[in-house]
Design a protein around this nucleic acid. Structure first.
Lengths: 196, 196
DNA sequence: GATCGAAACGGACTACAGTCCGCTTCTATT
DNA sequence: AATAGAAGCGGACTGTAGTCCGTTTCGATC
């Protein structure tokens, strides 16, 4: 007899020791962030706290940036759920424009809250493809709902770009622009793009 | 007699040995980038090549990011000159909308060209305040010329945001969007924001 | 339950960023 | 020209990211 037809079983299942370590690592990482802040999460400290070797940490996350990306992902999942299925105006139920504006503000708050983590995660593939594009995809969908015409993928990217942490921090920290002015500015931007 | 009135002489002049070393360091840095790429520019290698101690490198640039920021600044100065005083449509002379569109495209090309350097420079203050805000200031000015109403500072930031390297790389490298579609998208964005 | 290949582990090792402090060089003053 | 104090210098030292490879653990098969 040949093997039990691995037809659609693409990824080989995770070994039990690997699963145990992954769990221990994530828990230790969250704990270290709370205790010592993002900067205090060193790969050595993480390995020690999780009771594994350093090599294991790198096998799991690839790099420090990868680790931070994983933590970020963990945190963002909750927010994504609120957007997809939470109460209006962020979740479904409110009219599209209201939803879009609520979305923008919510995203700003989130990006500022996670600023350290985002920075530590860097850009490179760390903020997993899926997580990053979720934001753009959602805006694109809402633009469609609003009946906007044109290259919606690009317009979505353009609307999301000024919500990025790197841009926000420039405005908030350096230029000292108050949050409500930023919110108002983005609202105006949306109105112009959506046509009205 | 008291001192010769240091009234307006704000920064104490640079010592000669310091000037010599600064020059040697910049030259060595440019050379190393050409030879081994941005990643090959280590602080040790730079110090060795310039014939100075490591402490001197850090005294001069503060950090690796600071060094990269200095290199970037060096490269961008030329471009700023082209924007402020070069031939149209980038430089003065062309109608504002044409100038703005030329500006956007030029900025994209530049950001992609300098991608490695920009990334290595990080965000934190390294891309000197002045250099960073030049772009936004210029867009703001052109929006004014176009007779756009509203919070021009915010609108300028919003138009510049999707030209940032971090956003462009996502589009070009990961989503494989061709450059001309990106250019077209930005052009459309500008038209919507400027009201048309 | 014995065997075997593959996957995962762990920690010593390397390379680089950034610090520290005693030493040298410069410049202003007399 | 001599001197003093400040500015600058340099390289040994520390801490952390990331690599490497011999060893251990797992789970599939017989």
């Amino acid at each position: 007899m040949s093997k039990p037809l691995p037809l659609l079983t693409s990824p080989p299942p995770e070994r039990r020791d690997a699963a145990r370590n992954r769990e221990a690592l994530m828990e230790a990482a969250v704990c270290l962030v709370e205790l010592h802040g993002v900067r205090g999460v060193t790969m050595d400290a993480l390995a020690a706290r999780a009771g594994v070797g350093k090599g294991t940490v790198f096998r799991r996350f690839g790099s420090r940036e990868g680790l931070m990306g994983a933590l970020l992902n963990h945190s963002e999942t909750e927010w994504q759920a609120a957007v997809m299925g939470g109460p209006p105006p962020l979740g479904p139920g409110a009219p599209p424009l209201e939803r879009l504006l609520a979305f923008g503000e919510s995203r700003m708050v989130l990006n500022i809250k996670h600023a350290e983590l985002i920075e530590a995660a860097g850009n490179p593939g760390a903020r997993s493809f899926a997580a990053l594009s979720f934001t753009t995809m959602h805006v694109r969908y809402l633009l469609g709902q609003l009946g906007v015409e044109g290259d919606l993928a690009y317009l979505a990217t353009a609307l999301v770009a000024p919500l990025e942490m790197i841009v926000l921090r420039e405005q908030v920290d350096r230029e000292q622009i108050p949050m409500d002015r930023i919110t108002a500015g983005w609202t105006d931007l949306v109105r112009r793009v959506a046509g009205g």
